[in-house]
Simulated scan of single mutants.
Amino acid sequence: MTLGDKDTAILQHMVEHALQVELTLQRFGRDRAAFNRDFLFRNALSMPIFAITELAKHLSKEFRDTYDEIPWQLIGSMRNRFAHEYNAIDWDICWNTAIEDIPMLSQFAVNILQRNNQPVPTLTDVETDITIYGKGD
């Protein structure tokens, strides 16, 4: 499958938000007890996860069908929980998503971008808030 401009931009943004998850874990520590105690930690970690779930729903059907090993429907249901049932967020799922699922999804996106010779955001880009891809995305 040839990667279209829209899917490329979405994957780049997903990687960027995954890097924000990593930076948040670095800043607050990978301490589950601290996550449970600190609403700022929970908010800081959940926002980029929400952004990733929102972005995933905008990937083309062709892309999602081609890469059906990714649980796109599950990602979408997590987005709906964040968007519509904020008080019902399962913080265990949020933590496990940040620690286990986001790194795998990010690596998947990086691999696709690299195979298609597209720029891949880095920690430096995120730390300095540099956009390396199209304007207005």
Rank of each mutant, 00 (worst) to 15 (best):
N116E: 04
M78I: 12
L105H: 07
V21D: 00
I89G: 08
K135R: 13
D38V: 07
M78A: 12
F41P: 00
G29F: 09
E54M: 12
E127Q: 11
G134T: 11
A33R: 11
T97N: 10
D125C: 06
V120K: 05
M14F: 04
I102M: 04
G4D: 13
I99E: 08
V120R: 06
F35V: 04
N43W: 14
T53S: 10
F39Y: 09
K6I: 11
V15Y: 00
L59M: 06
M78C: 05
R81S: 12
I75W: 01
W95R: 01
L25D: 04
L74W: 13
D137H: 11
F39V: 12
A9Q: 10
F35M: 04
A98F: 03
L59W: 04
M78S: 10
L45H: 05
R81K: 14
Q73M: 13
K6C: 09
L74G: 15
I93V: 15
A98V: 04
L40I: 11
M47V: 04
G4F: 00
I89L: 15
E54Q: 15
T53P: 02
V21N: 02
D101I: 11
T128S: 11
W91M: 13
D7W: 00
P121W: 01
I99A: 02
A9C: 08
Q114F: 08
L40R: 15
D65Y: 07
D92L: 14
F63H: 05
